[in-house]
Design a protein around this nucleic acid. Structure first.
Length: 420
RNA sequence: GUGGGUAUAGCUCAUCUGGUUAGAGCGCUAGUUUGUGGCACUAGAGGUGAUGGGUUCGAUCCCCAUUAUCCACCCCA
């Protein structure tokens, strides 16, 4: 048995890589026109970065990280998400002394040791943005709109639901958690093991537990939105109004609490309407920078699963690949190949997509090949043409053919006109 | 991490309840005479039937394990 790729990884090629390129192009356009800057950070980081930021008790950190000791005995982890790395870079490179806000975007591979399912891989790619230095709901709105614009551009927006919620700040959440514990106090021992653990470490996660045995205890469970402090309430209302004002459809979903510890206030998710997958999510993380020993810096961001976006694009057949090989050159042993390659390469320099036989195929096979790769035109240069310094240019679409001088400018001119 | 499917050619799938050299379609390569693609026809390449054990005279088929993959949970992107 030959070697297969590792569990949960993918090879991406041919038609699919075209979709990736299309997606990446749209992402960089949307981000760059918003004056955001791309950032690339290391694929691996010190393990403690993720323990401190994402949180030791989260599933991501406690059971899904690729962690190992390097030859120097350092504990290294392949990044399971990128917000932590971006914040680390923000602090380490002194971004706080640059004009605020800092607006960053990234595309990168992430690694989580998970059980496989459709759209869920061990190596996957996230696109995300992080805006650091604004505590305004306008930053939340702008961040969310970047995602919305991308989905609209991809014609995916009507296939998705934007769900938002507020999980409050440190203060109001602390009060709420007391209320929550009080409410559950008498029933918690009848609930599932996970919930009992959550009761102690992170009671808010009990809310989105889907176990039947737990549901009946949660019918009138107090929700954080009813316990927000005045500031948090005001920010949440402002954000909702802002989204309505700019016509971004959303739902308030009080069960969204997010699985990473660093979130506060605004949280949101983009979910597929038809498929059982979340395409991405994010929220505010006003305390993360100081948690990682930087100065207090409010921030908001999100991450989208590129693999899942691609999955949806394929599902709804939203990307049609355009084959655009401008011209295919035939080549025969008896020809003066140097001269032909010079023409081919000059045309390539001028921006045309040009292909040429490099297999010594028969003439007929070359014609068939040109047809299969969807070449728009074919340039036939046989012995007669070489002798007369001419070539036959044929449109594969119309089958029209004409004889031209074997000259780069003449062929270029022909390709520009597209007519014979 | 829990439960349940699936695994045969590059792809999609056959092979009547276990029985000779495991097939088809698509794709690929080549050919159907002079230098012209799509259509059609012909031929060819390509499988240790995921891997390893077991039952049997005999296993692609039955049993077990491993691995991969898919679905539902869990979680998330």
């Amino acid at each position: 048995m030959s070697i297969a790729r590792s569990k949960g990884t993918n090879d991406i090629f041919f038609d699919e890589i075209k979709i990736w390129e299309y997606l990446e192009k749209n992402i960089s356009e949307i981000c760059n026109k918003r004056n955001m800057c791309q950032i690339r950070t290391p694929v691996f980081e010190d393990t403690s970065l993720f323990c401190r930021s994402v949180g030791n008790d989260t599933d991501v950190v406690s059971k899904e990280m690729y962690t190992f000791l390097d030859k120097g005995g350092r504990s290294i982890t392949l990044r399971p998400e990128l917000t932590a790395g971006v914040v680390r870079a923000y602090i380490e490179n002194g971004f706080s002394s640059m004009p605020s806000p800092i607006k960053l975007w990234y595309i990168g591979n992430m690694y989580r040791y998970e059980k496989m399912q459709k759209g869920r891989y061990r190596e996957f790619t996230q696109y995300g943005i992080e805006v650091l230095g604004s505590d305004s709901y306008l930053a939340d709105m702008e961040v969310i709109c970047t995602g919305v614009e991308l989905f609209k551009k991809l014609n995916l927006w009507d296939k998705l639901t934007l769900k938002i919620n507020s999980i409050g700040c440190k203060e109001c959440r602390a009060k709420y958690i007391e209320v929550l514990r009080g409410y559950l106090k008498n029933d918690i021992e009848n609930m599932c093991e996970d919930c009992q653990r959550r009761y102690i470490k992170n009671p808010m996660r009990i809310i989105d537990c889907k176990q039947e045995k737990c549901k009946k205890y949660k019918e009138n469970i107090p929700m954080i939105t009813d316990y927000l402090c005045d500031d948090c309430k005001k920010d949440f209302e402002s954000l909702k109004k802002a989204l309505r004002d700019i016509n971004v459809e959303f739902e308030v979903d009080k069960t969204i609490v997010r699985g990473l510890d660093y979130y506060n206030k605004t949280v949101f998710e983009f979910e597929s309407k038809d498929l059982n997958i979340a395409v991405g999510g994010g929220g505010r993380y006003d305390t993360l920078v100081e948690l990682l020993d930087g100065i207090h810096t409010p921030a908001v961001g999100y991450a989208l699963g590129m693999n899942r976006i691609i999955l949806l694009l394929k599902e709804y057949n939203l990307y049609k690949e355009e084959k655009n090989i401008d011209i295919y050159f035939t080549l025969f042993d008896s020809n003066n190949y140097v001269k032909i390659f010079n023409i081919v390469n000059t045309l390539r320099d001028r921006g045309y997509i040009v292909d040429i036989d490099i297999c010594n195929k028969s003439f007929k096979a070359q014609m068939k090949y040109a047809n299969k790769i969807n070449a728009k035109n074919i340039c036939i240069i046989g012995d007669d043409e070489i002798e007369n310094n001419t070539c036959q240019l044929k449109s594969m679409k119309t089958s029209e053919q004409c004889e031209l001088k074997l000259d780069t400018d003449v062929i270029d001119n022909f390709l520009k006109g597209g007519k014979i």
